[in-house]
Write a protein that binds this DNA or RNA. Structure first.
Length: 570
DNA sequence: GCCGTTTTCGGCCCGACTGTTTTCAGTCG
């Protein structure tokens, strides 16, 4: 069983305990444990096999460790099974609806016998909900809208999608005279791969005017709420945006608070508590005296911590590192000098070698690897040995025409079912750059898939493993592989791991990057551009790298042409 | 249920908004 499923079990236990109105701290413990498990890069099943003490995992104590063993051995958790018998099965679903929490869900079930979203919808439409204690007409309408939201958006959108909405919003906000300053916070600022909603902090002398101007934004579908401190709206596209007003003296503390993560905040707040201080969104306080709040840096500094980059604020050891001066100096978009994966019309790209090269140069890159598909990818018109060699010649011809730029003759060669490569050794060794990827025959066991990939890594002719987990966010689960073995093979054979920058791939995911980095693996960033505008996804890959604690020296794309050529001489 | 270089017991982050209420509970982030 995979970590995500086990985390899901603990979240479900937390939901059910909440519905039963049990000890809120116990409920939070289950949620914390679930989150820590999701953050793990090692599989619980492996840790158990190797005899590790699971209670060493943060937020996992003896009781949870015991349950994990039980789940791994029997496939079920007795605690969950017994809770399921005590709570009607549809109630956790009801809690997914905004404005419906455990109390209302229970009340709806108790008094109207509601057990599903459909039943709740019908009850609202029949105006039965408004007669319940503490509910009214407004509640009914809110619930109906909430159900529509849950059913249409299923929660989160890709980072890139949110980024595009934010770009449009920025154009509007930047024209508002009443707004002195605005910043985006939340999971967007931390660079998570999917975004639930956008948090925007606003500093404005006249909040009424600022609110009116914000509400004039033409992409707003409806206004969820408005007050002196906050305005919440939902765009027609479904994305919720919360605007919050803060004075300049509190802005840094607020930015920190709303950037999160929640787990990071709690840990930082504990540092404040050690000093008998209080940290909230208005600042760091000793009694009623504000010690800091204007900037994030000032708040962290007062707590004797270095400023923590938002991408690191996930409670993965960054607070301790910030206190001990052990934070990494993260790779930056400005450090990136080139792109190591893209496609042209030779396979499934939209533009020619020259068009891609010119676009890369406009992007400010010094080098670009052209890596078209090999023949196994028939759908993409993949190249056979002869075509690949001719294509490499064409790339080098184009390269000869370019000054102070290296157009690399590359290939994305398929890793076939038994780990052999789709092109012969002679073709591959003639290339400047070889990315090897799995595209087909994904349905195989964990061991077989790992063997397959390790065989390719050990071939001696590849430079890089492309989109290592093969996942498509929201559509295709990552392949089951033993990442430790893959990392080990990469170190042994001096093969890089790619961070694929496509918005719905972002593969390798951040949690694995850090382990691989610690083991000594070098990474590459590949936009996997299929047209000239595909290079714009590079910042997404950099975000992943930063979330994975990667430094400039961990990323091959940061090298100069000379240094890159030297590094590739095997 | 977790956690501890003050603690193995007794804490556990903190505030705003909404709707339905006359003082607050529930929800959310």
């Amino acid at each position: 069983m995979e970590n995500a499923e086990i985390a899901g079990i603990f979240d479900e236990i937390a939901d059910l305990l909440e519905l039963r109105d049990e000890n809120p701290f116990r409920i939070r413990s289950y949620r914390n444990a679930a989150q820590s498990i999701r953050n793990l890069s090692d599989r619980l099943a492996d840790l158990t096999d190797q005899g590790h003490d699971l209670s060493a995992i943060p937020n996992v104590g003896d009781a949870t460790a015991k349950k994990i063993h039980e789940i791994l051995e029997t496939g079920v958790c007795k605690r969950l099974e017994s809770l399921r018998k005590q709570v009607p099965p549809g109630l956790p679903d009801l809690m997914r609806v905004p404005a419906v929490g455990p109390r209302k869900a229970m009340q709806l079930h108790r008094e109207l016998n509601i057990e599903s979203l459909e039943e709740l919808k019908h009850a609202c439409e029949a105006h039965k909900v408004r007669d319940l204690d503490g509910m009214g007409k407004k509640t009914e309408e809110t619930i109906l809208q909430g159900i529509a939201t849950v059913q249409s958006t299923a929660g989160r959108m890709l980072y890139q999608e949110a980024a595009e909405h934010l770009d449009s919003l920025a154009e509007h906000l930047d024209t508002v005279a009443a707004i002195d300053r605005w910043e985006v916070a939340g999971s967007y600022r931390r660079g998570r791969e999917t975004i639930g909603d956008l948090d925007v902090l606003v500093h404005a002398k006249d909040r009424t005017k600022a609110t009116e101007a914000i509400l004039a934004y033409n992409a707003i579908g409806r206004v969820i709420g408005r007050g002196k401190e906050r305005v919440s709206v939902r765009l027609e596209a479904g994305l919720q945006i919360d605007f919050r007003f803060f004075d300049a003296a509190a802005f840094g503390a607020a930015w920190m608070y709303f950037t999160g993560s929640k787990a990071h905040n709690i840990r930082v707040r504990r540092v404040a508590q050690e000093n008998k201080w209080k940290l909230n969104e208005y600042g760091l306080f000793k009694d009623d005296h504000r010690l800091a709040g204007k900037t994030e840096k000032a708040v962290y500094a007062r707590l004797d911590m270095r400023w923590v980059a938002p991408e690191l604020r996930e409670d993965r050891g960054e607070v301790e590192a910030a206190r001990q001066g052990g934070l990494p100096r993260l790779v930056d978009l400005d450090d990136v000098r080139g792109d190591l994966q893209c496609h042209t019309t030779a396979s499934d790209g939209k533009h020619s070698i020259q068009e891609m090269a010119q676009a890369a140069r406009r992007q400010g890159f010094d080098f670009l690897a052209i890596t078209d598909h090999s023949k196994r990818v028939t759908m993409a018109n993949g190249l056979d040995d002869e075509a690949a060699r001719k294509h490499a010649d064409a790339i080098r011809e184009a390269d000869a025409d370019m000054k102070r730029f290296w157009l690399m003759a590359g290939i994305e060669v398929d890793i076939l079912k038994r780990g052999n490569l789709d092109l012969n050794e002679k073709t591959l060794t003639a290339m400047d750059w070889v990315v090897a990827s799995v595209h087909y025959d994904r349905a195989m066991g964990r061991k077989a898939m790992t063997d397959r990939i390790v065989t390719a890594i050990a071939s001696g002719v590849i430079h890089c493993l492309g989109h290592p987990l093969g996942r498509i966010i929201g559509r295709r689960e990552p392949m089951a592989v033993d990442m430790d073995r893959i990392i080990e093979a990469c170190v042994d054979h001096n093969v890089c791991l790619e961070i694929n920058c496509q918005p719905d791939r972002l593969d390798l995911p951040d949690t694995f990057c850090r382990d691989a980095r610690d083991a000594g693996v070098t990474f590459t960033l590949g936009t996997d551009a299929h047209s000239t505008d595909g290079f714009r996804f590079m910042p997404l890959g950099v975000k992943v790298a930063r979330r994975g604690w990667l430094r400039k020296t961990d990323v091959l794309n940061t090298k100069t042409i000379t240094a890159l050529k030297k590094a590739l001489r095997k």
